[in-house]
Design a binder for these strands. Structure first.
Lengths: 249, 249
DNA sequence: CCAAAACTGAGTACGCCGTACTCGATTTAT
DNA sequence: ATAAATCGAGTACGGCGTACTCAGTTTTGG
Protein backbone atom coordinates (compact mmCIF):
# COMPACT_ATOMS: atom_id res chain seq x y z
CA UNK A 1 0.00 0.00 0.00
CA UNK A 2 2.73 2.42 0.89
CA UNK A 3 4.92 1.06 -1.92
CA UNK A 4 5.74 2.64 -5.23
CA UNK A 5 3.23 1.06 -7.56
CA UNK A 6 4.76 2.76 -10.57
CA UNK A 7 8.00 1.68 -12.18
CA UNK A 8 9.11 5.26 -12.70
CA UNK A 9 8.46 6.25 -9.12
CA UNK A 10 10.37 3.34 -7.67
CA UNK A 11 13.95 4.40 -6.93
CA UNK A 12 16.44 2.45 -8.99
CA UNK A 13 18.91 2.06 -6.16
CA UNK A 14 17.48 1.31 -2.71
CA UNK A 15 18.84 2.89 0.43
CA UNK A 16 20.64 -0.07 1.90
CA UNK A 17 22.21 -3.31 0.77
CA UNK A 18 24.75 -4.36 -1.79
CA UNK A 19 25.17 -2.54 -5.08
CA UNK A 20 23.11 -4.05 -7.93
CA UNK A 21 25.14 -5.87 -10.59
CA UNK A 22 23.68 -3.86 -13.41
CA UNK A 23 21.29 -1.00 -14.07
CA UNK A 24 17.80 -0.65 -15.43
CA UNK A 25 19.31 1.03 -18.46
CA UNK A 26 21.54 -1.98 -19.07
CA UNK A 27 18.52 -4.25 -18.75
CA UNK A 28 16.58 -2.17 -21.25
CA UNK A 29 19.53 -2.07 -23.61
CA UNK A 30 19.95 -5.83 -23.55
CA UNK A 31 16.25 -6.36 -24.21
CA UNK A 32 16.33 -3.88 -27.08
CA UNK A 33 19.33 -5.64 -28.59
CA UNK A 34 17.50 -8.97 -28.52
CA UNK A 35 14.31 -7.53 -29.97
CA UNK A 36 16.16 -5.71 -32.74
CA UNK A 37 18.02 -8.84 -33.74
CA UNK A 38 15.41 -11.54 -33.27
CA UNK A 39 12.06 -9.90 -32.71
CA UNK A 40 9.89 -9.28 -29.69
CA UNK A 41 8.92 -12.90 -29.19
CA UNK A 42 12.57 -13.82 -28.66
CA UNK A 43 12.51 -11.96 -25.37
CA UNK A 44 11.97 -14.17 -22.38
CA UNK A 45 13.06 -13.63 -18.82
CA UNK A 46 15.41 -16.61 -19.07
CA UNK A 47 16.98 -15.42 -22.27
CA UNK A 48 17.32 -11.87 -21.05
CA UNK A 49 18.93 -12.99 -17.81
CA UNK A 50 21.34 -15.23 -19.70
CA UNK A 51 22.38 -12.32 -21.91
CA UNK A 52 23.03 -10.25 -18.82
CA UNK A 53 24.93 -13.04 -17.14
CA UNK A 54 22.44 -13.20 -14.30
CA UNK A 55 20.07 -15.73 -12.83
CA UNK A 56 16.58 -15.69 -14.26
CA UNK A 57 14.87 -14.63 -11.08
CA UNK A 58 17.41 -11.95 -10.37
CA UNK A 59 15.71 -9.83 -13.01
CA UNK A 60 12.77 -9.44 -10.67
CA UNK A 61 15.02 -7.38 -8.44
CA UNK A 62 14.96 -4.71 -11.13
CA UNK A 63 11.47 -5.11 -12.45
CA UNK A 64 8.26 -6.54 -11.05
CA UNK A 65 7.07 -8.24 -14.23
CA UNK A 66 7.94 -8.85 -17.83
CA UNK A 67 5.56 -6.06 -18.73
CA UNK A 68 7.82 -3.59 -16.99
CA UNK A 69 10.69 -4.76 -19.19
CA UNK A 70 8.56 -3.71 -22.13
CA UNK A 71 7.83 -0.38 -20.49
CA UNK A 72 11.54 0.21 -20.08
CA UNK A 73 12.22 -0.70 -23.70
CA UNK A 74 9.56 1.62 -25.05
CA UNK A 75 10.53 4.62 -23.00
CA UNK A 76 14.21 4.12 -23.78
CA UNK A 77 13.67 4.00 -27.52
CA UNK A 78 11.17 6.85 -27.50
CA UNK A 79 14.15 8.90 -26.45
CA UNK A 80 15.40 8.51 -30.02
CA UNK A 81 12.50 10.59 -31.24
CA UNK A 82 14.38 13.60 -29.94
CA UNK A 83 17.93 13.07 -31.04
CA UNK A 84 19.51 16.42 -31.67
CA UNK A 85 19.85 19.45 -29.50
CA UNK A 86 19.28 21.86 -32.35
CA UNK A 87 16.59 24.35 -31.54
CA UNK A 88 13.22 23.27 -32.91
CA UNK A 89 11.86 25.12 -35.94
CA UNK A 90 9.85 28.22 -35.24
CA UNK A 91 6.97 27.03 -37.41
CA UNK A 92 4.79 24.56 -35.53
CA UNK A 93 3.90 22.72 -38.75
CA UNK A 94 7.56 22.20 -39.54
CA UNK A 95 8.17 21.15 -35.96
CA UNK A 96 5.46 18.50 -35.95
CA UNK A 97 6.56 17.26 -39.35
CA UNK A 98 10.06 16.84 -38.01
CA UNK A 99 8.83 14.96 -34.97
CA UNK A 100 6.69 12.71 -37.14
CA UNK A 101 9.62 11.88 -39.38
CA UNK A 102 11.85 11.04 -36.46
CA UNK A 103 9.15 8.87 -34.93
CA UNK A 104 8.81 7.02 -38.20
CA UNK A 105 12.53 6.47 -38.64
CA UNK A 106 12.81 5.19 -35.09
CA UNK A 107 9.89 2.80 -35.48
CA UNK A 108 11.27 1.46 -38.74
CA UNK A 109 14.64 0.94 -37.08
CA UNK A 110 12.96 -0.98 -34.22
CA UNK A 111 10.07 -2.87 -35.80
CA UNK A 112 8.83 -4.13 -32.44
CA UNK A 113 8.31 -0.60 -31.14
CA UNK A 114 5.09 0.38 -32.90
CA UNK A 115 2.93 -2.58 -31.85
CA UNK A 116 4.39 -2.50 -28.36
CA UNK A 117 3.99 1.22 -27.78
CA UNK A 118 0.46 1.27 -29.17
CA UNK A 119 -0.75 -0.99 -26.41
CA UNK A 120 0.67 0.88 -23.42
CA UNK A 121 -0.20 4.44 -22.48
CA UNK A 122 3.16 5.88 -21.56
CA UNK A 123 4.17 7.91 -18.58
CA UNK A 124 7.92 7.36 -18.68
CA UNK A 125 10.32 10.28 -18.64
CA UNK A 126 11.11 10.19 -22.35
CA UNK A 127 7.46 9.93 -23.32
CA UNK A 128 6.75 12.88 -21.09
CA UNK A 129 9.57 14.81 -22.74
CA UNK A 130 8.18 13.99 -26.17
CA UNK A 131 4.76 15.30 -25.23
CA UNK A 132 6.38 18.32 -23.65
CA UNK A 133 8.28 19.05 -26.85
CA UNK A 134 5.22 18.66 -29.06
CA UNK A 135 3.09 20.90 -26.88
CA UNK A 136 5.89 23.43 -26.69
CA UNK A 137 5.76 23.84 -30.45
CA UNK A 138 2.20 25.09 -30.21
CA UNK A 139 2.98 27.71 -27.63
CA UNK A 140 2.51 30.66 -29.96
CA UNK A 141 -0.94 29.73 -31.18
CA UNK A 142 -2.95 30.98 -28.26
CA UNK A 143 -4.63 27.64 -27.69
CA UNK A 144 -5.74 26.11 -24.42
CA UNK A 145 -3.83 23.08 -23.22
CA UNK A 146 -6.85 20.98 -24.01
CA UNK A 147 -6.93 22.21 -27.58
CA UNK A 148 -3.22 21.56 -27.91
CA UNK A 149 -3.68 17.99 -26.70
CA UNK A 150 -6.44 17.43 -29.21
CA UNK A 151 -4.29 18.77 -32.02
CA UNK A 152 -1.19 16.79 -31.10
CA UNK A 153 -3.29 13.71 -30.45
CA UNK A 154 -4.65 13.83 -33.97
CA UNK A 155 -1.19 14.07 -35.51
CA UNK A 156 0.17 11.27 -33.33
CA UNK A 157 -2.84 9.12 -34.17
CA UNK A 158 -2.13 9.42 -37.86
CA UNK A 159 1.60 8.89 -37.45
CA UNK A 160 1.19 5.83 -35.24
CA UNK A 161 -1.54 4.34 -37.39
CA UNK A 162 0.39 4.76 -40.60
CA UNK A 163 3.66 3.42 -39.27
CA UNK A 164 2.02 0.51 -37.56
CA UNK A 165 0.47 -0.76 -40.74
CA UNK A 166 3.72 -0.08 -42.58
CA UNK A 167 5.85 -2.18 -40.24
CA UNK A 168 3.16 -4.85 -39.94
CA UNK A 169 3.32 -5.36 -43.67
CA UNK A 170 7.11 -5.39 -43.70
CA UNK A 171 7.26 -7.79 -40.78
CA UNK A 172 4.74 -10.17 -42.31
CA UNK A 173 6.88 -10.23 -45.40
CA UNK A 174 10.06 -10.77 -43.42
CA UNK A 175 8.54 -13.57 -41.35
CA UNK A 176 7.31 -15.35 -44.44
CA UNK A 177 10.82 -15.25 -45.85
CA UNK A 178 9.47 -14.56 -49.31
CA UNK A 179 10.10 -11.74 -51.71
CA UNK A 180 7.33 -9.27 -52.39
CA UNK A 181 6.73 -10.80 -55.80
CA UNK A 182 6.46 -14.30 -54.36
CA UNK A 183 4.01 -13.15 -51.78
CA UNK A 184 1.84 -11.36 -54.29
CA UNK A 185 1.86 -14.46 -56.47
CA UNK A 186 0.77 -16.49 -53.46
CA UNK A 187 -2.25 -14.29 -52.91
CA UNK A 188 -3.04 -13.83 -56.55
CA UNK A 189 -5.12 -16.96 -57.04
CA UNK A 190 -7.20 -16.11 -53.98
CA UNK A 191 -7.76 -12.56 -55.16
CA UNK A 192 -8.74 -13.85 -58.56
CA UNK A 193 -11.29 -16.15 -56.99
CA UNK A 194 -12.79 -13.14 -55.22
CA UNK A 195 -12.88 -11.17 -58.45
CA UNK A 196 -14.53 -14.09 -60.18
CA UNK A 197 -17.59 -13.59 -57.98
CA UNK A 198 -18.10 -10.24 -59.70
CA UNK A 199 -18.58 -8.49 -56.38
CA UNK A 200 -15.21 -6.80 -56.32
CA UNK A 201 -14.99 -4.40 -59.26
CA UNK A 202 -12.42 -2.17 -57.56
CA UNK A 203 -10.20 -5.10 -56.71
CA UNK A 204 -10.45 -6.05 -60.35
CA UNK A 205 -9.39 -2.58 -61.42
CA UNK A 206 -6.52 -2.83 -58.96
CA UNK A 207 -5.10 -5.97 -60.49
CA UNK A 208 -5.43 -4.53 -63.96
CA UNK A 209 -3.79 -1.18 -63.47
CA UNK A 210 -1.97 -2.00 -60.23
CA UNK A 211 1.74 -1.89 -59.77
CA UNK A 212 2.03 0.58 -62.59
CA UNK A 213 3.00 3.69 -60.71
CA UNK A 214 2.91 2.55 -57.13
CA UNK A 215 3.41 5.46 -54.75
CA UNK A 216 6.38 4.91 -52.47
CA UNK A 217 5.72 4.51 -48.79
CA UNK A 218 7.64 7.68 -47.95
CA UNK A 219 5.36 9.68 -50.19
CA UNK A 220 2.24 8.03 -48.84
CA UNK A 221 3.27 8.87 -45.31
CA UNK A 222 3.97 12.46 -46.27
CA UNK A 223 0.71 12.73 -48.19
CA UNK A 224 -1.56 11.96 -45.26
CA UNK A 225 0.56 13.93 -42.82
CA UNK A 226 0.56 17.01 -45.03
CA UNK A 227 -3.17 16.81 -45.69
CA UNK A 228 -3.84 16.51 -41.96
CA UNK A 229 -1.56 19.43 -41.11
CA UNK A 230 -3.15 21.47 -43.90
CA UNK A 231 -6.60 20.78 -42.53
CA UNK A 232 -5.54 21.64 -39.00
CA UNK A 233 -3.90 24.89 -40.06
CA UNK A 234 -6.94 25.88 -42.09
CA UNK A 235 -9.21 25.32 -39.08
CA UNK A 236 -7.08 27.37 -36.73
CA UNK A 237 -8.18 30.86 -35.74
CA UNK A 238 -6.24 33.26 -38.00
CA UNK A 239 -5.17 35.52 -35.14
CA UNK A 240 -7.09 35.08 -31.95
CA UNK A 241 -10.19 34.36 -34.00
CA UNK A 242 -13.40 32.99 -32.57
CA UNK A 243 -12.95 29.31 -33.40
CA UNK A 244 -10.67 26.81 -31.65
CA UNK A 245 -9.53 23.53 -33.14
CA UNK A 246 -12.57 21.66 -31.89
CA UNK A 247 -15.28 22.52 -34.33
CA UNK A 248 -18.67 23.45 -33.02
CA UNK A 249 -21.14 20.70 -33.77
CA UNK B 1 3.96 -27.42 -52.15
CA UNK B 2 0.71 -28.06 -53.93
CA UNK B 3 -1.23 -27.29 -50.73
CA UNK B 4 -3.29 -24.22 -49.95
CA UNK B 5 -0.90 -22.14 -47.92
CA UNK B 6 -3.58 -19.54 -47.26
CA UNK B 7 -6.41 -20.00 -44.79
CA UNK B 8 -8.90 -18.37 -47.12
CA UNK B 9 -7.97 -20.52 -50.06
CA UNK B 10 -8.25 -23.75 -48.14
CA UNK B 11 -11.71 -25.25 -48.63
CA UNK B 12 -13.60 -25.46 -45.37
CA UNK B 13 -15.11 -28.85 -46.11
CA UNK B 14 -12.81 -31.38 -47.76
CA UNK B 15 -13.98 -33.72 -50.48
CA UNK B 16 -14.06 -36.95 -48.54
CA UNK B 17 -14.41 -38.12 -44.99
CA UNK B 18 -16.83 -37.56 -42.14
CA UNK B 19 -18.63 -34.29 -41.64
CA UNK B 20 -16.81 -31.89 -39.30
CA UNK B 21 -18.47 -31.39 -35.93
CA UNK B 22 -18.56 -27.63 -36.28
CA UNK B 23 -17.67 -24.87 -38.70
CA UNK B 24 -14.97 -22.26 -38.97
CA UNK B 25 -17.61 -19.65 -38.30
CA UNK B 26 -18.57 -21.40 -35.06
CA UNK B 27 -14.92 -21.52 -34.07
CA UNK B 28 -14.52 -17.83 -34.76
CA UNK B 29 -17.70 -17.04 -32.89
CA UNK B 30 -16.59 -18.97 -29.82
CA UNK B 31 -13.21 -17.24 -29.83
CA UNK B 32 -14.86 -13.85 -30.18
CA UNK B 33 -17.17 -14.61 -27.28
CA UNK B 34 -14.23 -15.48 -25.05
CA UNK B 35 -12.23 -12.42 -26.07
CA UNK B 36 -15.19 -10.09 -25.58
CA UNK B 37 -15.85 -11.44 -22.11
CA UNK B 38 -12.36 -12.05 -20.77
CA UNK B 39 -9.87 -10.45 -23.11
CA UNK B 40 -7.52 -11.74 -25.77
CA UNK B 41 -5.15 -13.42 -23.37
CA UNK B 42 -7.94 -15.68 -22.13
CA UNK B 43 -7.93 -17.45 -25.49
CA UNK B 44 -5.96 -20.64 -25.52
CA UNK B 45 -6.39 -23.67 -27.69
CA UNK B 46 -7.41 -25.76 -24.67
CA UNK B 47 -9.95 -23.23 -23.51
CA UNK B 48 -11.36 -22.72 -26.96
CA UNK B 49 -11.68 -26.46 -27.53
CA UNK B 50 -13.38 -26.90 -24.17
CA UNK B 51 -15.92 -24.20 -25.04
CA UNK B 52 -16.64 -25.97 -28.29
CA UNK B 53 -16.90 -29.34 -26.59
CA UNK B 54 -14.03 -30.73 -28.60
CA UNK B 55 -10.59 -32.14 -27.89
CA UNK B 56 -7.79 -29.63 -27.87
CA UNK B 57 -5.99 -31.02 -30.86
CA UNK B 58 -9.15 -31.34 -32.86
CA UNK B 59 -9.01 -27.60 -33.44
CA UNK B 60 -6.05 -28.16 -35.69
CA UNK B 61 -8.40 -29.88 -38.12
CA UNK B 62 -9.93 -26.48 -38.75
CA UNK B 63 -6.93 -24.25 -38.44
CA UNK B 64 -3.20 -24.78 -38.79
CA UNK B 65 -2.16 -22.56 -35.89
CA UNK B 66 -3.47 -20.28 -33.19
CA UNK B 67 -2.59 -17.37 -35.43
CA UNK B 68 -5.22 -18.50 -37.90
CA UNK B 69 -7.79 -18.38 -35.12
CA UNK B 70 -6.91 -14.73 -34.75
CA UNK B 71 -7.19 -14.23 -38.50
CA UNK B 72 -10.67 -15.72 -38.40
CA UNK B 73 -11.69 -13.51 -35.50
CA UNK B 74 -10.49 -10.34 -37.16
CA UNK B 75 -12.10 -10.98 -40.50
CA UNK B 76 -15.37 -12.01 -38.88
CA UNK B 77 -15.63 -8.86 -36.80
CA UNK B 78 -14.49 -6.59 -39.62
CA UNK B 79 -17.74 -7.65 -41.21
CA UNK B 80 -19.45 -5.46 -38.62
CA UNK B 81 -17.92 -2.38 -40.21
CA UNK B 82 -20.51 -2.78 -42.95
CA UNK B 83 -23.73 -3.53 -41.12
CA UNK B 84 -26.55 -2.10 -43.13
CA UNK B 85 -27.57 -2.59 -46.72
CA UNK B 86 -28.58 1.01 -47.18
CA UNK B 87 -26.96 2.57 -50.20
CA UNK B 88 -23.82 4.47 -49.26
CA UNK B 89 -23.98 8.26 -49.34
CA UNK B 90 -23.20 9.91 -52.63
CA UNK B 91 -20.63 12.21 -51.08
CA UNK B 92 -17.32 10.43 -50.61
CA UNK B 93 -16.50 12.50 -47.53
CA UNK B 94 -19.75 11.47 -45.89
CA UNK B 95 -19.09 7.88 -46.92
CA UNK B 96 -15.65 7.72 -45.40
CA UNK B 97 -16.88 9.45 -42.26
CA UNK B 98 -19.58 6.81 -41.93
CA UNK B 99 -17.09 4.00 -42.40
CA UNK B 100 -14.76 5.53 -39.84
CA UNK B 101 -17.55 5.80 -37.29
CA UNK B 102 -18.60 2.22 -37.78
CA UNK B 103 -15.01 1.04 -37.49
CA UNK B 104 -14.69 2.94 -34.25
CA UNK B 105 -17.90 1.60 -32.78
CA UNK B 106 -16.91 -1.94 -33.68
CA UNK B 107 -13.45 -1.59 -32.17
CA UNK B 108 -14.85 -0.14 -28.98
CA UNK B 109 -17.31 -3.02 -28.78
CA UNK B 110 -14.46 -5.52 -29.22
CA UNK B 111 -11.47 -4.00 -27.44
CA UNK B 112 -9.17 -6.79 -28.58
CA UNK B 113 -9.78 -6.00 -32.24
CA UNK B 114 -7.66 -2.90 -32.72
CA UNK B 115 -4.36 -4.26 -31.41
CA UNK B 116 -4.95 -7.59 -33.13
CA UNK B 117 -5.90 -6.18 -36.51
CA UNK B 118 -3.06 -3.67 -36.51
CA UNK B 119 -0.51 -6.45 -36.51
CA UNK B 120 -1.86 -8.53 -39.38
CA UNK B 121 -2.26 -7.31 -42.94
CA UNK B 122 -5.64 -8.66 -43.89
CA UNK B 123 -6.72 -10.54 -46.96
CA UNK B 124 -9.91 -12.17 -45.67
CA UNK B 125 -13.19 -11.78 -47.53
CA UNK B 126 -14.64 -9.16 -45.19
CA UNK B 127 -11.47 -7.09 -45.22
CA UNK B 128 -11.51 -7.24 -48.99
CA UNK B 129 -15.13 -6.12 -49.00
CA UNK B 130 -14.28 -3.23 -46.72
CA UNK B 131 -11.53 -2.05 -49.02
CA UNK B 132 -13.83 -2.54 -51.97
CA UNK B 133 -16.47 -0.38 -50.34
CA UNK B 134 -14.05 2.37 -49.44
CA UNK B 135 -12.55 2.49 -52.92
CA UNK B 136 -15.99 2.42 -54.45
CA UNK B 137 -16.84 5.66 -52.69
CA UNK B 138 -14.08 7.42 -54.59
CA UNK B 139 -15.25 6.26 -57.97
CA UNK B 140 -16.43 9.66 -59.11
CA UNK B 141 -13.24 11.56 -58.40
CA UNK B 142 -11.29 10.59 -61.48
CA UNK B 143 -8.38 9.23 -59.48
CA UNK B 144 -6.11 6.34 -60.34
CA UNK B 145 -6.39 3.26 -58.19
CA UNK B 146 -3.04 4.08 -56.71
CA UNK B 147 -4.21 7.53 -55.70
CA UNK B 148 -7.36 6.07 -54.20
CA UNK B 149 -5.31 3.63 -52.13
CA UNK B 150 -3.13 6.44 -50.86
CA UNK B 151 -6.17 8.47 -49.89
CA UNK B 152 -8.01 5.63 -48.18
CA UNK B 153 -4.80 4.53 -46.53
CA UNK B 154 -4.36 7.92 -44.93
CA UNK B 155 -7.89 7.91 -43.52
CA UNK B 156 -7.56 4.35 -42.21
CA UNK B 157 -4.19 5.20 -40.68
CA UNK B 158 -5.73 8.02 -38.68
CA UNK B 159 -8.77 5.99 -37.69
CA UNK B 160 -6.76 2.99 -36.57
CA UNK B 161 -4.19 5.08 -34.78
CA UNK B 162 -6.76 7.08 -32.88
CA UNK B 163 -8.89 4.14 -31.85
CA UNK B 164 -5.93 2.07 -30.84
CA UNK B 165 -4.74 4.64 -28.37
CA UNK B 166 -8.29 5.15 -27.19
CA UNK B 167 -8.89 1.49 -26.38
CA UNK B 168 -5.38 1.07 -24.98
CA UNK B 169 -6.14 3.75 -22.44
CA UNK B 170 -9.51 2.28 -21.61
CA UNK B 171 -8.10 -1.22 -21.28
CA UNK B 172 -5.24 -0.11 -19.06
CA UNK B 173 -7.80 1.50 -16.83
CA UNK B 174 -10.02 -1.58 -16.85
CA UNK B 175 -7.13 -3.92 -16.10
CA UNK B 176 -6.00 -1.80 -13.21
CA UNK B 177 -9.49 -1.96 -11.75
CA UNK B 178 -9.30 1.63 -10.64
CA UNK B 179 -11.46 4.59 -11.40
CA UNK B 180 -10.08 7.34 -13.59
CA UNK B 181 -9.68 9.60 -10.59
CA UNK B 182 -7.80 6.95 -8.64
CA UNK B 183 -5.46 6.37 -11.53
CA UNK B 184 -4.77 10.03 -12.01
CA UNK B 185 -4.05 10.36 -8.32
CA UNK B 186 -1.65 7.45 -8.60
CA UNK B 187 0.34 9.18 -11.31
CA UNK B 188 0.09 12.60 -9.81
CA UNK B 189 3.05 12.37 -7.46
CA UNK B 190 5.23 11.11 -10.29
CA UNK B 191 4.14 13.90 -12.57
CA UNK B 192 4.79 16.39 -9.84
CA UNK B 193 8.30 15.06 -9.42
CA UNK B 194 8.85 15.62 -13.14
CA UNK B 195 7.51 19.15 -12.91
CA UNK B 196 9.75 19.82 -9.94
CA UNK B 197 12.75 19.48 -12.23
CA UNK B 198 11.57 22.59 -14.04
CA UNK B 199 12.02 20.94 -17.42
CA UNK B 200 8.36 20.36 -18.09
CA UNK B 201 6.62 23.75 -18.30
CA UNK B 202 3.81 22.41 -20.50
CA UNK B 203 3.13 19.52 -18.18
CA UNK B 204 2.94 22.10 -15.42
CA UNK B 205 0.42 24.15 -17.36
CA UNK B 206 -1.54 20.95 -17.95
CA UNK B 207 -1.93 20.16 -14.28
CA UNK B 208 -2.92 23.74 -13.53
CA UNK B 209 -5.60 24.27 -16.14
CA UNK B 210 -6.24 20.60 -16.88
CA UNK B 211 -9.55 18.87 -16.45
CA UNK B 212 -11.30 22.18 -16.81
CA UNK B 213 -12.98 21.70 -20.15
CA UNK B 214 -11.70 18.34 -21.29
CA UNK B 215 -12.76 17.56 -24.83
CA UNK B 216 -14.71 14.32 -25.05
CA UNK B 217 -13.19 11.46 -26.95
CA UNK B 218 -15.97 11.48 -29.55
CA UNK B 219 -15.17 15.10 -30.37
CA UNK B 220 -11.44 14.45 -30.45
CA UNK B 221 -11.94 11.62 -32.91
CA UNK B 222 -14.17 13.77 -35.08
CA UNK B 223 -11.77 16.70 -34.91
CA UNK B 224 -8.81 14.88 -36.43
CA UNK B 225 -10.94 13.01 -38.92
CA UNK B 226 -12.61 16.18 -40.14
CA UNK B 227 -9.32 18.06 -40.39
CA UNK B 228 -7.83 15.21 -42.40
CA UNK B 229 -10.82 14.99 -44.72
CA UNK B 230 -10.76 18.77 -45.12
CA UNK B 231 -7.13 18.69 -46.08
CA UNK B 232 -7.66 15.86 -48.53
CA UNK B 233 -10.61 17.55 -50.17
CA UNK B 234 -8.69 20.81 -50.47
CA UNK B 235 -5.82 19.05 -52.19
CA UNK B 236 -8.01 17.27 -54.71
CA UNK B 237 -8.21 18.51 -58.30
CA UNK B 238 -11.36 20.64 -58.52
CA UNK B 239 -12.58 18.97 -61.71
CA UNK B 240 -10.00 16.91 -63.51
CA UNK B 241 -7.36 19.42 -62.56
CA UNK B 242 -3.66 18.87 -62.95
CA UNK B 243 -2.86 17.73 -59.43
CA UNK B 244 -3.54 14.33 -57.90
CA UNK B 245 -3.66 13.60 -54.18
CA UNK B 246 0.06 12.95 -54.02
CA UNK B 247 1.62 16.36 -53.98
CA UNK B 248 4.57 17.07 -56.16
CA UNK B 249 7.67 17.50 -54.03
C1' DC C 1 34.58 -0.48 14.56
C1' DC C 2 31.04 -3.78 14.99
C1' DA C 3 26.77 -5.72 14.95
C1' DA C 4 22.38 -5.97 12.77
C1' DA C 5 19.46 -4.73 9.23
C1' DA C 6 18.66 -4.86 4.38
C1' DC C 7 19.15 -6.42 0.16
C1' DT C 8 21.28 -9.58 -3.48
C1' DG C 9 21.37 -13.46 -6.72
C1' DA C 10 20.71 -18.15 -7.54
C1' DG C 11 17.89 -22.32 -7.40
C1' DT C 12 13.73 -25.06 -7.36
C1' DA C 13 9.14 -25.78 -8.61
C1' DC C 14 4.31 -25.06 -10.41
C1' DG C 15 0.92 -24.47 -13.68
C1' DC C 16 0.18 -22.80 -17.86
C1' DC C 17 0.99 -22.61 -23.00
C1' DG C 18 1.31 -24.16 -28.38
C1' DT C 19 1.59 -28.01 -30.96
C1' DA C 20 3.96 -32.62 -33.04
C1' DC C 21 2.64 -37.23 -33.36
C1' DT C 22 -0.17 -41.46 -33.15
C1' DC C 23 -4.15 -44.38 -33.72
C1' DG C 24 -8.70 -46.53 -33.85
C1' DA C 25 -13.38 -45.05 -35.44
C1' DT C 26 -16.22 -43.05 -38.89
C1' DT C 27 -17.89 -41.32 -43.17
C1' DT C 28 -17.94 -40.83 -48.03
C1' DA C 29 -17.21 -41.71 -53.18
C1' DT C 30 -16.84 -45.23 -56.20
C1' DA D 1 -19.39 -53.30 -50.55
C1' DT D 2 -14.97 -51.54 -50.34
C1' DA D 3 -11.25 -48.55 -49.95
C1' DA D 4 -9.70 -44.03 -49.31
C1' DA D 5 -9.80 -40.16 -46.56
C1' DT D 6 -10.70 -37.66 -42.66
C1' DC D 7 -12.18 -37.29 -37.83
C1' DG D 8 -11.62 -36.77 -32.67
C1' DA D 9 -9.03 -37.79 -28.88
C1' DG D 10 -4.89 -38.72 -26.21
C1' DT D 11 -0.11 -38.36 -24.88
C1' DA D 12 4.02 -35.91 -24.61
C1' DC D 13 7.63 -32.25 -25.09
C1' DG D 14 9.84 -28.06 -24.55
C1' DG D 15 9.24 -23.43 -23.17
C1' DC D 16 7.09 -19.80 -20.68
C1' DG D 17 6.20 -16.30 -16.39
C1' DT D 18 6.89 -16.11 -11.82
C1' DA D 19 6.15 -17.50 -6.44
C1' DC D 20 9.06 -18.84 -2.89
C1' DT D 21 13.28 -19.94 -0.24
C1' DC D 22 17.83 -19.22 1.56
C1' DA D 23 22.68 -18.39 2.09
C1' DG D 24 25.84 -14.69 1.29
C1' DT D 25 27.13 -9.75 0.93
C1' DT D 26 26.96 -4.90 1.68
C1' DT D 27 25.65 -0.96 4.10
C1' DT D 28 24.59 1.77 8.01
C1' DG D 29 23.47 3.23 12.98
C1' DG D 30 25.39 3.45 17.33
Amino acid sequence: MTGHENLWMRPERPARGPRPSFSRAALAEAAIRIADAEGLEAISMRRLAADLGAGTMSLYRYVTSKDEVFDLMVDTVVGEYLPDDRPPPDDWVEGLRLLAGQARRTMLRHPWLAPLAAGRPQVGPNSARLMETALGMLGGLGLSVDEMLTLVGAVFAYVNGYIQSEVAEAEALRRSGLTLAQRLAQHLSYIQSLIATGNYPMLERMTMEGGREYTGTDDRFAYGLDRLLDGIAAGLPPRGGPEGPVRSR
